[in-house]
Amino acid sequence: MLTYVAIVLDGLVYASWLFMVSVGLTLIYGVMKILNIAHGSLYAIGAYTAASLVGAYFSAGYVPVLSFAVLVGAALAAGLVCGLVIERGVLRFMYGQDEVLMILVTYAIFLILEDLIKVFWGVSPYFAFQPYGMLGNFDVMGLPYAGYDFLLMGLAGLTGLGVWWSINRTRTGHLLTAVIHDREMSTAMGVNVKRVYTVTFVIGATLAALGGAFTAPKISVTPGIGVEVIVLAFAVVVIGGLGSIGGAMIGALLVGILRAAAVHLLPEVELFVIYAVMALVLAFRPYGLFAAPEARKI
């Protein structure tokens, strides 16, 4: 019994993290049709910024509780700066190119960012563990869980709701939807597509950085953390359906629970459970769980 409770809880914790790292990716793809490999680097930059700022914050001796605000601030700063620089500096010259070529563009950006991170922060790890312990532990049937993990769950839920609400209930969101459905028509109707792109990319980058910033307290922030995230986020997003926010949530839940089940019941398969799910889902739903099939153009 305890094992099954643990599977559900561990699965939810992991799913929240997966959702946080993949929601920005699916948003950017949905609007801009760019599968952003540099997403992992943005996650890493968010984590590094958060770790540096949290470290400075605590050595200055301010109120510990507000360190969560520092995490959010770090994500906003990192996402805004990197998002603007990448979109304005590189991507905007590439719009209209083939989707696959865009993958390569973001791959190049990824390579550059990975080394830039090394140049800025060096290779020694950074820690931001203070916020992690602050919320204490909760016992679930004798099994201790970190309070911070529940905070992450809440954050993931809020982020999902926030993104959904902004897309479906705000004017900007409606513009976004228009661009997603038909870019050319939107342009003709007077939508400033370039601006929509800039805004989307900055928001996507900020979401990636947010994922990194809130993961930072749990991990050691070292070179290479971004690479690991990319493929995971890809898998989640492809399972859910590229470009679908709800899909990313379901994909994260599916992968999270299955992986937790594997760890508890069948540790041998943990390594490829995620790819097996991805291949299986694609075999039966070629466009992922939640994406509408596209009409074939003549």
Binding site: A6, I7, L9, D10, G11, V13, Y14, W17, L143, D149, T215, K218, I219, I225, E228, R259, A260, V263, H264
Partner: peptide
Amino acid sequence: GQYGSEIS
């Protein structure tokens, strides 16, 4: 990087 399930 995430070892929640393993620790459980």
